[in-house]
Nucleic acid binder design. Structure first.
Length: 421
DNA sequence: CCTCCACCGGAACGTGAGGAGT
DNA sequence: ACTCCTCACGTTCCGGTGGAGG
């Protein structure tokens, strides 16, 4: 990355870079580090070079990306102008005292100086911040354009999670940005895209694809050994000596390596294990704490997923839980749908069709909350058989904490009714 | 070997919310 | 304030199907 970006220090345009890699492989961290180095080095050698970081998961439309860029550059320009004005005004007052001071500068007369000051003041006046909404996109675009081109510099735009941007608002933004260079007079722009998805360029316009992917860097997932090194390094800083038993770090590394080498996950695991050990007032962190941490993280994930489920999905899931609690195994769609209908009537919710409910069940399956298999029972039809793949009690508690499902006091009668029928 | 259950899952369409453009 | 467009969520309709039991 650094070898590609150094050309910025020579005032050339660096190639556009695309960085691929799964979550937790250090893409963002590396990119941010390199850009920091780049900016500080450029300051040392007095080469105007700036890096702008944008997280496209947060800023996910063309308008917002452009507006954010435009505004940061406008702000920077105003800073630059303010600095220049300060210096000129100092010069001005010095010239009033002693007109000869001007002879060292490019201004031959006080009038020249004043003209320059007036010009800068006009520039500052002209720069208008882009509002959060309301402008046509092309106006935002040209504002950004002028802001960047206000003085000479090399700009690296870092688009994190670029795949999200393309997914949500198409490749227009990238297309516009990538062809800006041909129209800029003073400045140069280079784009650095960071993507989780290796295949996201498939959806791009071929022109964008080729200009954006001038250089491609792939971050492979960490293997267990590398994870161990990372963990060891952090553990040395954050834990007292001998606070960890020998198998803690290898175990964390192994768990995380199974989850496609996510370093963030590995560090979470180690931290959670430490917290659990602390809470149970253990002297040292042992293997059991890591296993508990693994369970806890998994449970937290499930709780979060279940909590944010749409109401209809929650009702369906609740139906599955009721059946499961009554010792029904190999629950099939028909049973779920019957209970679901009763639940809906009880809490006064819309009743969806069975067709839709099967889709909801499939979604729950994809989320790993239930697991459903299509089986044929010969004469007795063909259906999805499913079972819960998360802890019953905890999940039920999460569901009942929903304001709409909380009304269901004692739901046993629903399942009983099924057997009576 | 055939039948027929009880649902699966694709296709086309309807609807309302929210964003973009004017 | 308006239209147009997209998108998620649902519905209706319906052809498809694995295999127990006749």
């Amino acid at each position: 990355m650094a070898t590609i970006l150094v050309s910025a220090l020579r005032g050339e345009t660096p190639s556009n870079i695309l960085i691929y890699g799964k979550t937790g492989t250090g893409k963002t961290a590396s990119a941010k580090f390199v850009s920091q180095e780049l900016e500080s080095t450029s300051q040392k050698y007095d080469v105007p070079c700036e890096v702008e970081y944008i997280n496209c998961e947060v800023t996910d439309t063309q308008y917002r990306v452009l507006a954010q860029l435009a505004n940061t550059f406008i702000e920077k320009n105003q800073q630059v102008i303010a600095d220049r004005l300060d210096r000129l005004r100092d010069l001005r007052s010095a010239a009033d005292d002693d007109p000869t001071t001007l002879s060292d500068t490019k201004f031959s007369t006080v009038d020249d100086l004043e003209a320059q000051i007036a010009e800068f003041e006009a520039d500052a006046e002209e720069m208008e911040e882009v509002p959060m909404t309301g402008w046509p996109t092309d106006r935002v675009y040209s504002t950004f354009f002028e802001a960047v081109d206000y003085h000479e510099r090399v700009v690296v735009i870092m688009l994190d999670e670029i795949d999200k941007l393309v997914e949500k608002s198409g490749d227009d933004t990238l297309y516009n940005l990538s062809r800006m260079n041909s129209e800029l007079d003073r400045s140069r722009i280079s784009i650095m895209g960071i993507s989780n998805d290796l295949k996201f360029t498939d959806f791009l316009d071929p022109r964008v694809k080729s200009s954006l992917g001038e250089e491609e860097i792939v971050f492979p997932p960490y293997d267990a050994n590398q994870l161990r090194d990372i963990l060891q390094h952090r553990a040395d800083i954050s834990f007292k000596q001998d606070a960890l038993t020998d198998d803690v770090i290898p175990l964390c590394a192994a768990f995380a390596a199974q989850e496609h080498g996510d370093a963030r996950r590995a560090l979470d695991l180690l931290r959670t294990a430490g917290e659990l050990a602390e809470r149970s007032q253990a002297e040292i962190v042992a293997e059991t704490h890591v296993r508990k941490a693994q369970d806890k993280i998994e449970l937290d994930r499930v709780v979060e997923v279940v909590r944010t489920l749409p109401t209809q999905s929650k009702i369906v899931l609740f139906a599955v839980i009721l059946l499961e609690k009554n010792g029904v195994h190999n629950i099939n769609t028909g049973e779920v749908f019957n209970i679901y209908k009763r639940l809906c009537e009880e809490i006064d919710a819309d009743v969806l069709t069975q067709r839709r409910v099967t889709d909801l069940i499939s979604e729950l399956d994809m989320l790993g909350i239930v697991n459903a298999v299509v089986v044929s029972k010969g004469r007795y039809g063909r259906t999805k058989e499913m079972g819960l793949s998360v802890p019953v009690e905890e999940t039920e508690a999460v569901l009942l904490s929903d304001s709409r499902l909380g009304d269901i006091e004692n739901a046993q009668p629903f399942v009983q009714a099924r057997f009576d029928n």
